[in-house]
């Protein structure tokens, strides 16, 4: 039982990271109807920026904040320059472009920072808590995610710009008639998603170590979480991400060797999707024609 609870809690910690990235995916999907396959690599690149700052003796939380700002701006630039031209192109073109971005960021990181694993500092001490049920590091990761979610909730719920972003995602034509500049909302959305992804990257890097391929598996789990929750639902994405994190840990502990974890995840995805094609909280996908 103790082992079980331990695995659940550490699963929640990694689930929180998947949930963040899943949320970033869902935000962009809702706004532009496309899946950003580069989300994970963008997060990885942001994490390298944080790593450089920390190495330059910037205090951790200052480096964290600065990285979020840089990622936000970077995300906006990417939307403007790379995504805008294919916004109305067929789905396949958009998929190919975001995969292209994925490759470019991966290669850029490999070229700039090499493929060797780097240690990334954790802002939280690694002490066991509550009779070793969870570590203070896990708790820290969960807390950061919760704070971020709360901030996002307040932003989208209570600020005018957050409301305008929701309106632009839901009904762009009507949003324009209200005087909302939909293009600008999309740009901000990409910026926000990049910043959320950066948070996920910085939280996961102390666990996985930093290298250009670090986010490959994370993206897949986040994607699974997003689909599990229903790719149109932000709340679903968070819950889906947590479920994936816990399941991954339990499967790894009790069922099979960890090399097959991804394969099991794949099978789980297919099973879930066959029975609930729109995920747990999502609405039916309308095909873009």
């Amino acid at each position: 039982m103790h082992l079980f609870l331990q695995q659940v809690f550490s699963g929640l910690a990694s689930g929180a990271i998947y949930a963040s990235l899943a949320l970033a995916l869902v935000m962009i999907y809702r706004a532009t109807d496309l899946v950003n396959f580069a989300q994970g690599e963008m997060a990885m690149f942001s994490t390298y920026i944080a790593w450089m700052l920390v190495n330059a003796a910037v205090p951790f939380w200052a480096a964290f904040a600065l990285t979020l700002v840089i990622s936000f701006i970077g995300g906006m630039i990417i939307e403007r320059v790379v995504i805008r031209p294919v916004e109305n192109a067929p789905v396949l073109a958009a998929v190919v472009v975001t995969i292209g971005l994925l490759l470019i960021f991966n290669a850029l990181a490999g070229w700039l920072f090499t493929y060797t694993l780097q240690e990334f500092p954790s802002p939280f001490p690694d002490r066991p808590l509550f009779g070793a049920l969870l570590t203070s590091r896990d708790l820290g990761v969960i807390a950061v995610t919760l704070v971020m979610l709360a901030l996002l909730f307040v932003f989208f719920r209570f600020t005018t710009i957050g409301l305008a972003m929701r309106a632009a995602a839901q009904n762009p034509a009507s949003a324009r008639l209200c005087g909302i500049r939909v293009g600008r909302m999309l740009t901000i959305g990409w910026g926000l998603a990049a910043a959320i992804g950066a948070t996920a990257g910085i939280m996961v890097a102390p666990i996985l170590f930093l290298d250009p391929n670090m986010m490959g598996g994370v993206l897949l789990y986040a994607f699974t979480g997003a689909l599990l929750g229903g790719i149109t639902s932000p709340v679903g994405a968070v819950i889906g991400g947590l479920i994936v994190g816990v399941t991954e840990n339990l499967v790894g502990t009790y069922l099979i060797a960890s090399q097959l974890k991804l394969t099991v995840a794949l099978i789980l995805i297919v099973i879930v999707l066959v029975f609930r094609p729109n995920g747990l909280f999502g609405t039916a996908i309308v095909r873009r024609v």
């Binding site: 998929v95 897949l220 689909l227 995805i269 996908i285 873009r288």
Partner: peptide
Amino acid sequence: FEGPYLALVTLAMAVA
């Protein structure tokens, strides 16, 4: 599966 779902399933397969 439409668009993104199929993309995920096949991507997962490539990785696995």
